[in-house]
């Protein structure tokens, strides 16, 4: 049995916080379980939930857990505003509201048989983690698997242990770069797009999934195009203001698309015409 949107899509379900884990100075992970049962939270990689703090407000947050794990619902959140700040102040045992899952998913079936390049930046690695789990769970269906990850400084590298585990596997390639570092960092220093330029994959038959700050995605698409990856095989995850997540409130409009229901994952050619237009 899965938890799905209630008949009234605006009504949050109470979920208890099982565990809270600090990831970075401003980023943390919550493991959640429905208060009134309901079993596994079924979702597709790339989808998001609306998380509600009693009386404070609600924000869209991507799901960052393993879609095939029947354990708790996992969200990794960066505290940047009122609601995310209130979430950061919560502890195991506290209860929050959850609505979802909403939105489109990374096209993992379409990518079968191809090299898959995941280009991510900053906290954008969190929405990418479910797809990494999926790709690894069905590793034989894909060609080369690459994670190209950029962060601000070594201290901002998210899921560091997990990245190291993935890096140690022989069936995937993990490359991490930071924008700036002091001498203690032994890894790469430079922009994430440089990882794209030198990564070993077949650009003419690779699927690229991009998730990070919008400006980083802009440069990443350019770098992927320069390598020869066609727009139709690039997908990216967009972010806009959201109040309802079901296409009523109008806030998340991005040209003719609603980020909440047509996205957040878009095939690049569907948004290409407006992606670089100012203030869309």
């Amino acid at each position: 049995m899965s938890v799905t949107a209630a008949a009234d899509p605006m009504l949050p379900e109470p979920f208890g916080i099982l565990r809270k884990r600090r990831e970075l100075s401003d980023t943390f992970t919550l493991e959640l379980s429905p208060l009134h049962g309901g079993g596994t939270f079924a979702f597709r990689p790339g989808q998001f939930n609306m998380l509600y703090v009693f009386g404070v407000g609600e924000i869209p947050i991507s799901i960052s857990g393993d879609p095939e794990d029947d354990g708790p619902l996992v969200h990794t959140i960066r505290a940047v505003g009122t609601v995310s700040g209130a979430l950061r102040d919560m502890e195991a045992g506290d209860v929050i509201g959850v609505r979802g899952p909403f939105g489109s998913a990374w096209p993992v079936e379409e990518a079968e048989g191809r090299d898959v390049v995941l280009v991510t930046g900053g906290v954008g690695l969190a929405p990418m983690r479910p797809v990494i789990h999926h790709l690894l769970a069905h590793r034989q269906r894909y060609g080369k698997l690459l994670i190209l990850y950029g962060a601000r400084t070594p201290e901002d590298v998210l899921f560091r242990k997990q990245l190291e585990q993935w890096r140690s596997r022989f069936d995937m390639f993990v490359d991490v770069t930071v924008d700036r570092a002091t001498g203690k960092w032994r890894g790469r220093v430079g922009v994430v797009t440089k990882l794209i330029a030198r990564a070993g994959f077949d650009p003419h038959d690779a699927a690229a999934f991009v998730c990070g700050p919008e400006v980083m995605m802009r440069f990443s698409v350019q770098a992927l195009n320069e390598r020869g990856v066609a727009d139709e095989r690039i997908h990216l995850s967009m972010e806009r203001n959201m109040k309802c997540a079901v296409g009523f409130c109008g806030h998340c409009q991005f040209g003719g698309q609603f980020v909440c229901k047509d996205g957040p994952v878009f095939r690049f050619d569907a948004i290409r015409d407006i992606f670089s237009v100012w203030e869309v």
Partner: peptide
């Protein structure tokens, strides 16, 4: 270009 891109400090928290 890479230096300029990094000047954007695109992963910075707002």
């Amino acid at each position: 270009a890479a230096a300029r891109m990094r000047l954007l400090d695109m992963y910075d928290s707002p």
